[in-house]
C-alpha cells in the first residue's frame, strides 16, 4: 500500500508536465516566427537606421521615435483612415456574408455553383485584385467610368485621384474580396447545426426570422466572433491592394497603417521610426484581440474538453 503510494505521486507529477512537453516544439516555432521579429522591431524602434548602411552604425536615439510618434499628425491620420476603413468594410462584409450564407444554405438548384462563384474572389492573390480594380477604376480607360457613362450618363470620375472616391474604391474592393470569407465560414457553421434544434423550433412555431435571429445566429455566435476577429486583424495588416491601387494617395486618403509604415520605412528610409509605428500597430491589434476574446471567447465553454 505504502509502496504504491510512493509510485503514484511522481507519476501524477509526470502527467502534469507531459502536455507542456507536447506543446513545447510548437511554442518554440511560434516564438522564433512571431516573437523574434516583434522583438527585433522593438529594438530597431530605439535606433535611427538607414537601409544600405551596417546595422552597427545605427544611432541610438532612445525614445525619440516614440515622442515623435505621439505628436505626428500623419500617424494619427493613417490610424483614422484604418479605423474608418475597418468600420465600413467589416460591417458590410459581415452583413452581406451572413445574408448570402442564409440564402444559399438550403439545397436549392445550383447552390453549389453559386457557392463556388462566390468564393472565387478569395482565391485571387491580393496583388492581382489590386491590379484588376486599378484598371477597372482607371479614369481614362476603366470599365467603371465607361459603363457609368453609357448606362447612366455619369461624367467620368477620377476614382483613384480623389480623396473620397479613392476611399470608396478601396472599401468596395475589400468588400468584393473578403465577403466570401465571411460567407464560407458562416455557411460551414450553419450546416453543422444539429437539425433537431431547428426542427424543435419549427414545431414550437418559430417563423423564418425568429429561426434566424433566435436560433441559428446565436448558435453560431462563436464562429461569428472568430470571423470578426480575423477580419479586424486583416484590416490592420492590409497592404497589397492599396499599395497597388493608390499607393496610399491621393495625399494620405487611403494610406492604412501598414502602408504608412511601409512608406515611412522604404520611401523615407526612416526604419527606426517605422519600427516604432509598427510597435504601436502590434499594441493596437493585441488590445483589440484580447478585448474581443474577453467579450465573446469562443473557447470559453470548451475549456474542459
Amino acid at each position: 500500500m505504502a509502496a504504491t503510494d510512493r509510485t503514484e505521486v511522481p507519476a501524477r507529477d509526470y502527467r502534469v508536465v507531459t502536455p507542456y512537453l507536447f506543446i513545447a516544439p510548437a511554442v518554440l516555432v511560434m516564438f522564433a516566427g512571431l516573437a523574434f521579429p516583434v522583438l527585433q522591431s522593438l529594438y530597431l524602434s530605439f535606433y535611427d537606421w538607414k537601409i544600405g548602411t551596417p546595422l552597427k552604425s545605427a544611432e541610438y536615439v532612445g525614445l525619440d521615435n516614440y515622442i515623435r510618434l505621439i505628436s505626428d499628425p500623419d500617424v494619427r491620420e493613417s490610424l483614422w483612415v484604418t479605423i474608418r476603413f475597418g468600420l465600413w468594410t467589416i460591417s458590410i462584409e459581415m452583413f452581406l456574408g451572413i445574408a448570402l450564407a442564409l440564402l444559399l444554405e438550403k439545397p436549392i438548384r445550383g447552390a453549389s455553383v453559386f457557392r463556388t462563384i462566390f468564393i472565387l474572389p478569395l482565391m485571387v492573390s491580393p496583388v492581382v485584385v489590386g491590379l484588376i480594380w486599378r484598371y477597372l477604376f482607371d479614369a481614362r480607360v476603366g470599365w467603371v467610368n465607361y459603363y457609368l457613362g453609357t448606362w447612366f450618363g455619369i461624367e467620368p470620375q477620377v476614382w483613384l485621384g480623389d480623396a473620397e472616391l479613392a476611399f470608396f474604391a478601396i472599401v468596395l474592393t475589400d468588400i468584393w474580396q473578403w465577403t466570401p470569407f465571411i460567407f464560407i465560414i458562416v455557411i460551414a457553421g450553419l450546416q453543422a447545426l444539429p437539425s433537431e434544434v431547428l426542427e424543435a423550433s419549427h414545431v414550437d412555431g418559430a417563423n423564418w426570422w425568429q429561426q434566424i435571429f433566435l436560433v441559428k445566429l446565436p448558435m453560431i455566435s462563436s464562429i461569428l466572433v472568430i470571423a470578426l476577429l480575423m477580419r479586424l486583424i486583416d484590416v490592420f495588416r492590409a497592404l497589397e491592394v492599396m499599395y497597388i491601387m493608390t499607393g496610399g494617395g491621393p495625399g494620405r486618403a487611403t494610406e492604412l497603417m501598414s502602408l504608412h509604415i511601409y512608406n515611412r520605412a522604404f520611401d523615407a528610409q526612416l526604419l527606426g521610426y517605422a519600427s516604432a509605428i509598427a510597435v504601436l500597430l502590434i499594441a493596437i491589434v493585441f488590445v483589440i484581440s484580447i478585448s474581443i476574446l474577453l467579450i465573446g471567447n469562443p473557447m470559453k465553454d470548451k475549456s474542459d474538453v
Binding site: 482607371d138 481614362r140 480607360v141 477620377v158 483613384l160 485621384g161 493608390t246 494617395g249
Partner: peptide
C-alpha cells in the same frame, strides 16, 4: 488636361498622349 491626372504615374501620363487623349 485629360481626366485622371491626379492618379497618373509616368506610364499613365504618357499613355494618355499616345492614346490620343
Amino acid at each position: 488636361g485629360p481626366n485622371g491626372i491626379a492618379s497618373f504615374g509616368f506610364g499613365e501620363a504618357a499613355a494618355a498622349f499616345l492614346g490620343g487623349d
